[in-house]
Every structure is written in structure tokens, then in C-alpha cells.
């Protein structure tokens, strides 16, 4: 049981869950008024990007994958969130 808790995968999960709750709270408090809020949006999207990268890197085991797979998946994360934030700020 303790080996499960000390398992790196579980630690990643704990981080992911904590950060999920944190970003939900940010959205609830900071964005409660349901108005445009660049701080909340940037925070929330960056956190989502980090979460996605963590799942891909650790759960999907890309950290042990060949370079081309690492590059492709990381490229997707970076590219997607860059575009999302880009369109968001460009449209303000």
C-alpha cells in the first residue's frame, strides 16, 4: 500500500488533482462575476497545459519514448495553448 502511495505516478496524480481543484477555485472566485478576466483565463489555460503535459509525459510514458514522439506531443501541447491564448488575446 505504501509503495503505491510513494509511487511516482501517484505523486503526479496528487499534483494533478491539487492543481485541478486550485484552478476550479480560481475560476469560481476570480471569475465569479462572469466577465472577461485575462488573469483567470491565462492561469487556467496555462495550468491546463501543464496538466496535459504531465499526463502525456508520465501516464502515457512519453518520457521514455523516442525523441520524435516526445517532440510531437510536446509540440502539440505548446502549439495548442499558444494558439488558444493567442486567439484569446487577439480577440479582446
Amino acid at each position: 500500500m505504501t509503495s503505491l502511495i510513494r509511487n511516482p505516478l501517484t505523486i503526479v496524480w496528487a499534483l494533478l488533482t491539487t492543481v485541478t481543484i486550485a484552478s476550479s477555485l480560481i475560476a469560481l472566485d476570480g471569475g465569479a462575476a462572469h466577465q472577461i478576466n485575462t488573469t483567470v483565463t491565462t492561469a487556467v489555460l496555462l495550468i491546463a497545459g501543464v496538466k496535459a503535459q504531465l499526463v502525456i509525459w508520465h501516464f502515457m510514458e512519453v518520457r521514455r519514448a523516442p525523441v520524435w514522439l516526445k517532440a510531437t506531443t510536446s509540440g502539440w501541447v505548446v502549439g495548442l495553448f499558444a494558439l488558444l491564448l493567442g486567439f484569446y488575446f487577439a480577440g479582446l
Binding site: T20, A27, H34, L45, F59, Y88
Partner: peptide, 23 residues
């Protein structure tokens, strides 16, 4: 099967931020 399932998880992480959280 695991790879597919994790992908489903990743997609939801983005959806959650875009639909529920962002302002």
C-alpha cells in the same frame, strides 16, 4: 488500451478549462 484512455483524459483537461473555467 492505456494509451487511448490517457488521451481521453488529456482531451477532457483541455475541455474543462475551455468550457467551464476560462473567462
Amino acid at each position: 488500451g492505456a494509451t487511448y484512455w490517457h488521451m481521453v483524459d488529456v482531451l477532457w483537461l483541455v475541455l474543462f478549462a475551455l468550457l467551464y473555467l476560462m473567462r
